[in-house]
Amino acid sequence: MLKMHNIRKSFRTDTIETHALRDFSLEVKEGEFVSVTGPSGSGKTTFLNIAGLLEPSTDGQYLLDGEDVSNLNDRQRSHLRNEKIGFIFQGFNLIPDLNLFDNIDVPLRYRGFNAKERRKRIEKVLEQVGLSARARHLPAQLSGGQQQRIAIARALAGEPRFLLADEPTGNLDSLMARQVMELLEFVNEWGTTIVMVTHDPDLARRAQRNIQIVDGQVCDLRPVTEQSDAVSA
């Protein structure tokens, strides 16, 4: 599904050059649920952005679904992003002046579906996240957990093969975090590959596999059960 080889990403500001990722190699198989942990500033978000084609890497090879995406232009990358990838963010990132229906509509518009198809899909995902009754509400009228469920619905509406979540429970209390986690697990059971960055060791442990990023590199590939000390450190 996803295969990165010797990816490097550096940010240049006037004075310093930061190497957010170096010699970064990783493979994620179809249908996996992978959790990503690591200290703050280690490059987790940078990895997700590159994996999700939001940013190009400075160097290295990235195969998505077997296709080398390193040299695609913006239009092609945007198209792939729209079709194959769903994003979930810590801050939900719903568009504040669009109601829930129109928020979920956004990726479907760029996909070019007709009105009937869009409505069908929106109603389906709204039902999946249990918020059908709220379709015409604005994001601000929902709780944080509900907002995140809408964000997940928006990510799922285009039926992506690959879901990228950056601390999806970071802004939620433990009860709502568990609900969101259960939703993600449910989605994964239906075949969507998930990569989730989290700081929560309990959630990380619930994934099939955990990888740790330290200082821009994949540090350790031990099974989840053996690394609980490292995560909580």
Partner: peptide, 13 residues
């Protein structure tokens, strides 16, 4: 605009 990009809008869109 950032959100729209993440959801699949190209620069030209």
């Amino acid at each position: 605009a950032g959100v729209r990009r993440a959801l699949g809008a190209s620069r030209s869109a």
